[in-house]
């Protein structure tokens, strides 16, 4: 029975001809746009997550505490709300780090009469504190430490980046929604034409006592087939685009965003895209069906 219903749906698609092709093309465009924005947004999301992990707040100390006091200071900071971890960097450690940064010019440091670098605490904020608000509160808490001379660091720039990522996602959803609505209307138009071409079959089916599902299902199936075909084409286009563009962009994004590679959809994402296409087509078919019912 299912084979018959699918066969009827395919026959209907052939009948719809160019209108069905336009519907498939529109679904392809809408899902390719939606999928494209989704990919860009998810890669930016990875970058934001990575950067959030790298956010550090540095507490410069007035003077290097004696060895015995360091552990107590670290413990006081560790128990503060919004602190995930803390590391003590002594004056000598800071100087070593500076030499490493300077590389072949590290000899300049040896000319200094005294080590000018202060001892410091490198604080890793917890996930909740990597927001502008959370970071400000943590900065205020750290600033009142009696040992603190100055506190540096902020999560504002990560939040700004995150804001742009959300904006991009919203634009993607908006563009996808408009194109999806257009695709549904095109599938509805194609299905209405199909229903007209199919009126004799429908009449005979009703006359011989076919169930409503048997009458409706081919129409719904052809809509779903258009949607699935559009989704497969969109996915194909995204795969090709990703495989061509990603290797060329990766050096740049590695340098700017710190991402070693541009990710593609997960298997769940692929299924979701195919499912969205099938749903769009099915909805178009169903709307046409509902509009034609007496």
């Amino acid at each position: 029975m299912l084979g018959f219903l699918v066969g009827e749906a395919l026959r209907d698609l052939r009948r719809a001809g160019r209108v069905a092709v336009s519907a498939v093309v529109l679904i392809t465009l809408s899902l390719a746009a939606l999928g494209g924005f989704w990919l860009v947004s998810s890669n930016l999301g990875h970058a934001v997550a990575k950067w959030r992990d790298r956010v550090r707040i540095v507490v410069y100390l007035k003077r290097e505490p004696p060895g015995g006091d360091v552990a107590a200071l670290l413990e006081r900071v560790r128990v503060m709300p919004g602190v995930a971890g803390v590391v003590f960097i002594g004056k000598a450690d800071a100087l070593r780090a500076l030499k490493q940064v300077l590389g072949k010019d590290a000899g300049v440091v040896d000319q200094l009469p005294v080590n000018p670098l202060p001892a410091s605490l490198e604080v890793t904020p917890s996930a909740a504190a990597v927001t502008p608000e959370g970071a400000r509160e943590l900065l205020a808490r750290l600033a009142v430490l009696p040992e603190a001379d100055d506190v540096a660091g902020s999560a504002d720039w990560v939040e700004r980046f995150s804001h742009w990522q959300r904006l991009l996602t919203t634009i993607g959803l908006g563009v996808g929604f408009v194109l999806a609505a257009a695709s549904i209307l095109t599938v509805t138009t194609a299905t209405t034409l199909i229903l007209h071409a199919r009126r004799h079959e429908t009449e005979i089916m009703r006359l011989v006592g076919a169930s409503e599902w048997t009458i409706r299902l081919p129409v719904l199936l052809q809509g779903m087939m258009q949607g699935l075909a559009g989704a497969i084409l969109a996915l194909g286009a995204l795969v090709v685009t990703h495989s061509v563009v990603a290797p060329r962009l990766e050096p740049l994004v590695s340098l700017t965003l710190g991402l070693s590679q541009l990710v593609f959809f997960t298997p769940v994402g692929v299924v979701a895209l195919l499912g969205a296409g099938t749903l769009l087509g099915g909805l178009g078919g169903w709307l046409a069906r509902a509009a034609r019912e007496p």
Binding site: M1, F4, V208, G209, A210, T214
Partner: peptide, 8 residues
Amino acid sequence: AFVLRVLG
């Protein structure tokens, strides 16, 4: 055959 097919 169409009649028989639609009736399963």
